[in-house]
Amino acid sequence: MSRPRLEIADIFRAHGPAWRRANAGHVSLTQLRVMSAIEACRTEALGGHVAACGKCGHQHVAYNSCKNRHCPKCQGPAARDWMTARAEDLLPVEYFHVVFTLPAEITRIAYWNKRALYGLLFRAAAETVTTIAADPKHLGARVGMTSVLHTWGSALTHHPHVHMIVPGGGLSPDGSHWIACRRGFFLPVRVLSRLFRRLFLEGLAALHEEGELQVFADLEGLTNPAAFAAYLAPLRKVEWVVYAKPPFGGPEAVLAYLSRYTHRVAISNHRLVGADAETVAFRWKDYRIKAGDRTKIMRLATDEFIRRFLIHVLPDGFHRIRHYGLLAGATRKATIGHIRELLGQRQPAQETQEAAEIIPLTLREPCPCCGGPMRIVEIFRCGQKPSARAPPREQAA
């Protein structure tokens, strides 16, 4: 994929300093570090290397990546590496995509309590699926799942939700056989929705009772227990949005499907249309439109665009990809191997050490001109310039 003509980094470099001055004291250290990392990504500020082809002599300069998980340019390679590692976990069964979404009233509380409520969202969603799947009235099996947190809507609004990929079945309680779900149907979403609602509200009430929640502005009165209970009361009677659908294709297609969610950031560079000191324009999807082209162009004030991007910066050390049930813990590989035996699938061949070894200083990507091996011929440190005269390489996001 070619490099987009406009990037988040360009907006941060041009307008970030003024935005930081205007919002001094209201921006977290984590958010400031994310801005700095994105601004420096794949520039001389982080150093890099010069690579040369052993066949045709082609050379190019490649600057180092910031590797920040919120950087649009760094998530493509990170997603590919993650998907390669997950390939050996795939089972020859149907997979399902389940999404758990929080109501807007809860989202407002989550805005100031990201670590606590995002963690509760993960736990409540996983416990919901595990509990319903274990019920003999539905599946009667122990299941596994991979959950991914997204905190945004297409317009960069705060919209926390969990994407969950679940194999269509599970192990029997005694582990002796595999119990498959009905083809095209995993678990009843209304049952999932109501248990999820109860578990989340119980967890939220416990956090409030323990004094773990902070609320500000027009919600500041919710520090009072009675006011908080009254605020939650209507949410116990409405349906919470949970939906499930089977991904298209077989197990191999699941990896491609999952890669759309695992390392996505709030907005990709390719959605950007234009930017100046006044506004940023980007493409978004209006899901209120039921049929036809949902894509529209949104224009936000530049300072508002930066603010919306930064509200999706996760707390330090918070894991946005988590595994539960059969796919969790140190016993995951052994459990998957056991399931494969029950399903009559051969274990994937293990690469030999020699085959997996990468020759030192040799890049994985071949020469763009002749396909020959590219070797690093020079390394330069942060702030230095390469001595070799070579054009910078176009790096895809």
Rank of each mutant, 00 (worst) to 15 (best):
S154R: 13
R142Y: 11
T128I: 11
P173D: 00
P167I: 04
L117A: 03
M145L: 15
L120C: 05
A116F: 12
H163N: 11
A134H: 08
G170W: 01
D135C: 13
T128P: 13
G168K: 11
R108K: 12
W112A: 13
V99C: 11
I179Q: 10
G153T: 07
H161A: 00
G169Y: 00
A133P: 07
M145S: 15
G144W: 06
K137A: 15
K114F: 12
H97G: 11
Y118R: 05
M164Y: 01
M164P: 03
F96I: 07
Y95D: 08
A141H: 03
I179F: 00
P160H: 02
H159A: 02
G168T: 04
G140M: 03
G169S: 01
I106L: 15
V129K: 03
A104L: 03
T146N: 05
H161M: 06
H158K: 00
E105F: 04
L187E: 04
V166R: 00
T157V: 05
P136T: 13
R183E: 14
S154K: 03
S172Y: 04
I179H: 05
L117E: 08
A134G: 15
G140W: 00
F100N: 12
V99H: 08
A110H: 14
L102M: 12
A124F: 04
H97K: 09
T107F: 01
A133T: 11
A155H: 09
A125C: 13
A126P: 06
T101K: 05
Y111L: 15
R123M: 13
R115F: 10
P136Q: 11
G170I: 01
R182P: 10
T151R: 14
F96M: 00
K137G: 14
L121R: 02
G168L: 04
T101Y: 14
L187P: 09
L139W: 15
W152G: 02
V166H: 02
M145N: 10
